[in-house]
């Protein structure tokens, strides 16, 4: 099928994004956009003793970027900051479980970038 990047799990996370919203007392937050399409995400994290206790995202993006953000929040909750900082492109494609063109991979990678920016803020 030609639109098989729109797998059930991706559509599910797109339609019902997990951890969407805000954290009342977050340790740090970050914001970034993709100038090509105008997608924008905010990540807020609550970290204590080097471990991610809570993470929320909000913003606006396509199905791929939204699903990527949503899955990422699930993935990193309870990870240490060190572990989360090691997540890379391959981990994101594996997490999404679909083959992405080199344009759409940018959609999938934006949430990771914003999450890392937030974690870097924490360390400051």
């Amino acid at each position: 099928m030609a639109y098989d990047i729109y797998q059930e799990n991706i559509l599910d996370h797109y339609e019902n994004p997990r951890n969407f919203g805000h954290i009342l007392n977050c340790t740090a937050k970050a914001h970034d956009t993709n100038p090509l399409c105008g997608d924008m995400f905010d990540f807020e994290v609550a970290v204590s003793e080097g471990r991610i206790q809570d993470v929320r995202f909000n913003g606006k993006g396509c199905a791929i970027s939204t699903a990527s953000a949503s899955m990422l929040t699930e993935k990193i909750k309870n990870m240490t900051v060190e572990e989360a900082m090691k997540i890379e492109r391959e981990d994101i494609t594996e997490m999404l479980g679909v083959e992405l063109s080199h344009v759409r991979i940018k959609c999938a990678m934006l949430p990771l970038k914003v999450m890392k920016l937030a974690l870097i803020e924490c360390k400051k």
Binding site: M1, A2, Y3, I5, Y6, P35, L36, C37, G38, D39, K60, G61, C62, A63, I64, S65, T66, R104, C107
Partner: peptide, 26 residues
């Protein structure tokens, strides 16, 4: 619906090339 999803499906399933994004006019 996000334009990247619209344009992505139009391309992959219908071979229709349209532009999606901010068209260099932020």
């Amino acid at each position: 619906l996000h334009p990247h999803d619209v344009a992505g499906i139009l391309d992959s399933a219908y071979s229709v090339a349209i532009r999606s994004g901010q068209h260099c006019a932020h």
